[in-house]
Design a binder for these strands. Structure first.
Length: 224
DNA sequence: CCAGACGTTGTT
DNA sequence: GTCTGG
DNA sequence: CCAGACGTTGTT
DNA sequence: GTCTGG
C-alpha cells in the first residue's frame, strides 16, 4: 500500500505560478519539473499576511538549525504529530510555507515490480502542499534553506495505493497556513483533512519516473 | 543532573 | 540489509 | 520515493 | 535547541 510524498512535479511556467500564488516574482530560470526528488532544490512560497510573499528555492529535506549531520534530513512530517516533534516544532510554529505542485507520484504494488501512478488536480492547475522550512549549515560550511512536506491520512482515491498523502491545502487555507505565529488549531485541523478525492485524478505513468535523474515529459504522461 | 536523541515511509 | 545520492 | 553503493590508508 | 531516558 504505498502512497507517498517522495516525488512530485511542477510543470507550469513562472508566470502561471506567480499568478496562481500572488507572487511579484519567482526565482529566475524556472523550468518545467516533471520529476522532483528529495535533496533537490524546490520552489517554496513563504511570507504573506502583512509580509510580502516570497518565492524561493529550498533543499527538499528539512534540517533543523541544530542538526549536526545532514543525514537527519526529513522530506516529510506527519501533521498529526509535527507540533510535538523536536525536529519540526520550531518550523511549524514559525516557518510554514506553500509548496507549489502540479501532481505527486506513488508506487503501487502489483504483479511483479512496483509501478508508479500520478495524482493530479481533476480541474488542472496547481496544488499548494503544506510545507515547513528552516535554514541549516554544516559545521563550518555554507548555509542552505531546507524544507519538508507535511503528510496526512489518504483520501478514498489514494488509500488503495498508499496509506499517506501530502497535505494539500484548500485555497481558503493557504493564506492562513502562511500567517506568522503559532498555527491556530482550526487551521491545523482543516489542513489535516484529506483533500477531497473527487477533486483528484489518478493515472499510471512510465517507470521512467523511477530514476530521479530523469526529468522529462514521459515521467508524467499517462500510460494504459 | 548528564547523555543522547531528535524522523518518515514501507516492509516483514 | 541499510545507507546515500538524486 | 527509487537506484545504487556498500572501503581503507595516505596524500593533497 | 530541547526533550527524553537513565
Amino acid at each position: 500500500m504505498p502512497a507517498m510524498c517522495g516525488r512530485y512535479s511542477l510543470v507550469e511556467s513562472g508566470e502561471e505560478i506567480a499568478a496562481r500564488f500572488l507572487l511579484d516574482a519567482v526565482p529566475g530560470a524556472l523550468h518545467p519539473r516533471y520529476n522532483i526528488a528529495p535533496s533537490q532544490a524546490v520552489l517554496i512560497v513563504a511570507g504573506g499576511e502583512g509580509r510580502p510573499r516570497r518565492a524561493e528555492l529550498a533543499r527538499w529535506g528539512l534540517l533543523p538549525a541544530w542538526a549536526r549531520e545532514a543525514r537527519l534530513a526529513q522530506i516529510n512530517a506527519r501533521i498529526e504529530t509535527a507540533a510535538e516533534r523536536r525536529m519540526f516544532a520550531g518550523a511549524l510554529r514559525a516557518r510554514r510555507c506553500l509548496v507549489p505542485a502540479s501532481s505527486f507520484f506513488e508506487w503501487r504494488r502489483g504483479p511483479g515490480a512496483r509501478r508508479p501512478v500520478r495524482f493530479a488536480p481533476a480541474a488542472g492547475g496547481l496544488w499548494a502542499f503544506a510545507g515547513i522550512w528552516e535554514d541549516w549549515a554544516p559545521p563550518g560550511g555554507p548555509g542552505v534553506r531546507t524544507c519538508a512536506i507535511l503528510t496526512t491520512a489518504p483520501n478514498a482515491l489514494v488509500a488503495p495505493v498508499h496509506d499517506r498523502m501530502p497535505v494539500i491545502l484548500p485555497p481558503d487555507l493557504e493564506a492562513a497556513w502562511m500567517a506568522p505565529g503559532p498555527l491556530p488549531a482550526d487551521v491545523l485541523a482543516g489542513a489535516a483533512r484529506p483533500y477531497p478525492a473527487e477533486r483528484m485524478t489518478l493515472h499510471a505513468v512510465s517507470t521512467a519516473v523511477n530514476d530521479a535523474r530523469r526529468d522529462a515529459p514521459d515521467c508524467i504522461a499517462p500510460i494504459s
